[in-house]
């Protein structure tokens, strides 16, 4: 990896960041409806409205507002929520942690499950179990995630009463400290939303892994490993699996990026206090500072992740071209 190469990627990353911020900023300026009126009420006191408009800086030319917004962002200031009168950063960081945890655990579960099953299927290539497994994986990719969540709630929360149906905690109050995220209470609430995400997501690593393994298993070094008399288990997991894993790692940043924004409806089904639900609520309430901030936060993280993910996969596998991971798309 040459310095010039890293530098070029860095430049693209900054451009991407700027684009994300610009899209977030200007999209909400196009939104119909007066954000001030939405907070004060259409019939509110004109003087109050004017004061609020002035204090939000909405009287400035749009370019000045844009400049100020970027200037504040650089200092970590996302503005003030219009509907809740609290700093946007408080709202979105809290939501982001909850969404991030949900996304990360969903990712780990579906990737582990998918890649193990995928390599087993590649090993059983041509048998009916392979055909059945692949068909099942493809079928589950057609299940809408949020509906999978509803069915899981029906079966495991309502009929069997094994697991909680919604929220992150029983009773929905109490201080959320870091230790809470390790408590049984939280884990119990996490199971169903994670399962819902996994149902639609595991097919992707499964198919990817199966294809890569099919490819790997027919390479010369596998013949050599077999000729050396290694056990089939070692051939599969110590040789083929490790090589087939590279593209899977390359694709993982895309999947996590997709998950961060792709679980909105799941969050709604499970009343999960995440960022996605926050965005939907903010858009409906015309609270554009919160919606804008959420988009910028997620966008920034995804851009950063892609950057480091790309660097990593080029480092691990010099043959990999930049952005190759973006060949794979999560389910819509």
């Amino acid at each position: 990896m040459s310095t010039g190469y890293i530098f070029r990627r860095l430049l693209y990353m900054v451009l991407n960041l700027l684009l994300v911020i610009s899209v977030a900023f200007f999209l909400f300026r196009l939104m119909p409806g007066d954000p001030v009126a939405a907070q004060v009420g259409e019939l509110g006191d004109i003087a109050v409205k004017e004061r609020l408009t002035e204090s939000l800086g909405l009287n400035d030319p749009i370019i000045v507002q844009y400049g100020k917004y970027i200037g504040n962002l650089v200092q970590g200031d996302f503005g003030t929520s219009l509907s809740k009168q609290t700093p946007v950063s408080n709202i979105i960081f809290k939501g982001f942690i909850n969404t991030g945890l949900l996304a990360l655990v969903t990712f780990l579960v579906s990737y582990t499950f998918g890649s193990v099953i995928g390599s087993l299927l590649a090993w059983k290539r041509g048998r009916s179990v392979e055909r059945f497994g692949l068909s099942l994986a493809l079928f589950f990719r057609g299940v809408p995630t949020f509906w999978a969540g509803m069915i899981l709630v029906y079966v495991f929360a309502i009929k069997l009463n094994w697991l909680p149906a919604s929220g992150m905690r029983t009773g929905n109050f109490g201080e959320t400290s870091w230790s809470f995220y390790l408590s049984m209470e939280f884990l119990k609430h996490l199971i169903l939303p994670v399962l819902a995400g996994t149902i639609t997501l595991f097919g992707l690593p499964l198919l990817l892994m199966r294809n890569m393994m099919v490819d790997a298993l027919e390479s010369g070094y596998i013949d050599l490993a077999r000729a050396k008399g290694l056990s089939e288990f070692r051939v599969i997991f110590a040789h083929a699996f490790r090589n087939a894993l590279l593209p899977l790692i390359a694709a993982s940043t895309t999947i996590i990026g997709w998950l961060l924004g792709g679980l909105v409806a799941v969050e709604v089904v499970f009343s999960w206090p995440g960022l996605g639900r926050e965005i939907v609520a903010a858009v409906s309430a015309r609270d554009y500072t919160v919606a804008q901030g959420s988009l910028v936060l997620v966008g920034t993280l995804v851009v950063l992740m892609y950057f480091f993910g790309d660097l990593l996969s080029t480092y691990v596998d010099p043959r990999a071209k930049f952005g190759k991971a973006r060949m794979v798309e999560g389910p819509a």
Binding site: Y12, L15, N16, L19, V20, V23, L27, F28, L30, M31, P32, T254, G257, W258, L260, G261, G262, V264, A265, G276, I279, V280, V283, S284, A291, S294, L295, V298, G299, V302, V303, Y306, G323, R326, A332
Partner: peptide
Amino acid sequence: VTRAVEFSYTIPAEPLAVIILAVLG
């Protein structure tokens, strides 16, 4: 084109669709 595709993956899809619909009705 490549940069555009790359960029399109950075904005979360579902929230973007929701926002586009809020803007356009």
